[in-house]
Write a protein that binds this DNA or RNA. Structure first.
Lengths: 379, 379
DNA sequence: CCGGGTTACTGTATCGGTACAGAAGGACGC
DNA sequence: GCGTCCTTCTGTACCGATACAGTAACCCGG
């Protein structure tokens, strides 16, 4: 045996990472062949492949490093979902979880992972800018367009969900306006003339809110408001509007009332008066639930004294008492459509930039009449 | 001006990606300086940095490419959560969403993104093996140890949640046994002698199930069973056990009964007999809910004729009628603890391998008595 | 025995950054 | 006037793969 020249080969430090090269040297083939053994089995003979895999196993080689592969291939195998500032919300709200669940399910067969992007930057890390991604879903988050901006600038394929459709960007929406119109028409048909609407902030005193309305989170609120007024105006009804602020009032500065508490107080005031509304149209089932409870506290019977209509057909709607009349939207369908649109967009981007006109999907809504609405009290 | 030699510089194809080098050339500094401008501001003068940033902006440079950075830095800014085969479940079950929400919230300030890993491999992509990650949470998924195996082999920092604690791997658990014992003791104290237990599959006819029991998803079931028998045996009570299979029986092969339907039938049978149990201890609040409904269908009053105890203190427990007596576990605390443990592990791995003995956290449980339990009927 | 088509591997050039060890030019103390 | 310490930049060497264009050997009909 000839004495090995010192350090002829790259020195092996205490713990050297095992890479393709390590395996290649061991087996005596080129690194490329090892790569092929793992990633393109059809490029080498079965025998050699087996040998290589065995050697890799022996050396404790796990497989191509995901980060390196992502760089070389230009693909990372993860798609992002950009959500509201409050991650907690995303997991609390049954509508949001339903959507996410459907996205996850639709994505499963593609083998892609779902990455949840906190929209707010923490420290100087901005997930939307710094996490390797193949594409992203933008889910009702207009208030923090910064992250959306990053996604766009990265040139990632994105799909808007519950946002204002923009030409050039595929979008998935629900027929919010039509649904709201149906809700309003329903109570009009039941003979109600004094109608209240409980929704989220739309007041345009803050320019930031205006921008948000136009471009994001409040798009849905806006559309539903339009739908309600469509029907109410036709019937010559001017609704009483109660707004729940989206932005908590200076949250940090001590014990302020939470927005829903403020709204609840206003609802209570509205329902306590002599000319109280006999029907309430709500932005969501959750809000409707609160309205029903408030009414109960005031001794009002739902639906005899007060009709209440929600929106979404949250599971909550059918399990509460009285079961809530509401507008159903297919959240799972929305998730599936969004995921499909995104994978399509990614595919398109990969194979020659075929930016066929971005599709805008609008899912239907449907009035579901349950036990929280009745004819207007005769009085 | 001297004529530029043709193609002296790398040729610029139609659309060349803008990289650090592009910006560096434009400004006339080294690529490294541009990198520093973005990633280590303290390494250059404020003036130059401003110049560089401006040039970058003008060129449409978004910032360091995440994939490249991940490779060079060895960190990707995303942490994974490995979950049960059914992603849908993760978003449906309020206990799971509570956990995930807490994890997300705990992680937010670190600026890390949360990547959901489908445990089942799709095509030949195995998320647990192929997605760039800095660490991972393994959340009650013993049935598919393959993915867990990949995570381990990659040498990623991982934390076990609701799995059998293993030395060397940090874990977060709940005092399932103690909780179950308290639940059982509660009904014993109320004078019940005929007690049923409704839980998930533990029968050891299938070796795969045995393995799962020992190492994963069924650990929790096992512990709770031990807890119940602790108290029941002491009181000389032999419980009637109804098991709900975890693995749907050959799901693909046509219209088979779903496991919970099978279980419901068995529960019904048990409750219909003359020597029916007067108390039922359930693995989860969801199962308890079903038991209560089944009892109602049989005309039994809860809690007068039958006491029912759940587990978890799912929000469902307090909102159902009658409100459910249950064992509370702090799901959010579990999520926070898991996230904290993982970030700690990642930190430890980064700075010199300090593999201090992995900590095993066990969170307490607490009996919450509500309206679904009462003294045993005198008969 | 030769042209043409496979099959099985290999070499080289990236992918787009970051780490770390300099090097150049002042400022400063004595 | 000179050594020292900063502050600012720069050069080089990876990080760990993949793409693509070869090249060599082999097969086969004519």
């Amino acid at each position: 045996m000839t004495p090995r020249p010192r350090s002829a080969l790259p020195r092996v430090d205490a713990v050297t990472r095992v890479t393709l090269q390590t395996v290649a040297d061991k087996v005596g083939v080129s690194r490329m062949t090892v790569s092929n053994a793992f990633s393109r089995p059809d490029q080498l003979s079965a025998d050699l492949r087996a040998t290589i895999l065995a050697a890799a196993e022996r050396l404790g080689y796990v497989g191509p490093d995901p980060a390196a592969r992502a760089l070389a291939r230009g693909t990372s195998g993860a798609i992002g979902v950009l959500m509201t500032d409050s991650l907690a919300f995303a997991f609390t709200d049954e509508v949001a979880t339903g959507f996410l669940g459907a996205v996850a399910e639709e994505l499963a067969p593609t083998g892609m992972a779902l990455t949840l992007l906190a929209s707010s930057a923490a420290g100087d890390r901005v997930p939307a800018r710094d996490v390797p991604l193949d594409g992203a879903l933008v889910y009702s988050c207009g208030l923090d367009s910064a992250s959306v901006e990053w996604l766009k600038r990265r040139g990632l394929p994105i799909v808007f969900v519950d946002q204002v459709p923009v030409t050039g960007i595929p979008s998935v929406n629900v027929d919010d306006r039509g649904g709201a119109r149906a809700a309003a028409q329903h109570v009009v048909d039941l003979g109600h003339r004094r109608v209240a609407v409980v929704t989220r902030e739309l007041e345009a005193d803050d320019p930031a809110i205006v921008a948000a309305t136009l471009s994001g989170e409040l798009h849905v609120s806006h559309q539903r408001m339009l739908g309600w007024t469509d029907a109410l105006e036709t019937a010559g009804i001017e609704p009483l509007v109660v707004r729940e602020s989206v932005r908590p009032p200076d949250w940090a500065s001590g014990a302020v009332e939470r927005p829903e508490q403020v709204a609840a107080r206003e609802v209570r005031a509205a329902l306590a008066g002599p000319d109280r509304p006999t029907a309430v149209l709500c932005f969501s089932d959750v809000m409707a639930y609160r309205v029903v409870r408030t009414a109960e506290e005031l001794g009002l019977q739902v639906p005899d004294d007060l009709s209440v209509v929600g929106f979404d057909d949250n599971p909550l709607a059918s399990r509460m008492t009285p079961a809530l009349t509401t507008i159903r939207q297919d959240v799972r369908g929305k998730g599936a459509a969004a995921a499909a649109a995104l994978t399509a967009a990614i595919e398109a981007a990969k194979s020659g930039r075929t930016v066929e006109r971005a599709r805008h999907v609008v899912l239907p809504t449907e009035l579901v009449v349950r036990d929280s609405t009745a004819r207007a009290p005769s009085s």
